[in-house]
Amino acid sequence: MTGPGKAPRRLDAASDALLAERAGDGDTAAFEALARRHGPLMRAYARRLTGSLADADDAVQEALVRCWSQLPALRDPAAVRGWMMRITARCAINVLRRRKYDIALDEETRDDPGPGPESRAVTGSSMTALGKALGRLPEAQRQCWVLRKMGGQSCEEIARTLGISTESVRGRLARAQATLIKEMEAWR
């Protein structure tokens, strides 16, 4: 991208609202500061939604381009974080849709069920087991669960994001929750 390679230090400490305003005005340094601040969350979110780190990075890249072009229209700059997360979710779902012809959704074996090798230190903990259980959920359920728990989306928002009915969202969330509870109780 163009513009200064490193944002002034002052931008790294600036509020989300200020950065969003400046980025909306065309300040690429402010935009990079926003991306550095929320990029890890966007990547983690996209990774859980897509089940793959490579797909997550594609989704983050696509989301950042969309954020940049839509920032001038953002009404509430202070709420930019949630807005970036919603865009990330839509992009992650799109990345998955683009390759859904290759793999049948619910039978897919995850190439990246979650925590990477660096997490071996906590292997065996309930948290790691939860990550794995989440990775084993049918994709449709996992997406609803991640949009709800990580993205904080309501059932209505999830329905819009995925293009399905609110009832389907509720059903998938209930099944995901039941499976996770059952597995979690088995670890105890």
């Binding site: 990774r47 997490s119 948290m127 728990k149 990580m150």
Partner: peptide, 15 residues
């Protein structure tokens, strides 16, 4: 779930 999300973000790497 909250712990897992915190770990996920940590593992996503820094900005």
């Amino acid at each position: 779930t909250a712990e897992l999300i915190a770990l996920d973000i940590l593992q996503a790497g820094r900005g």
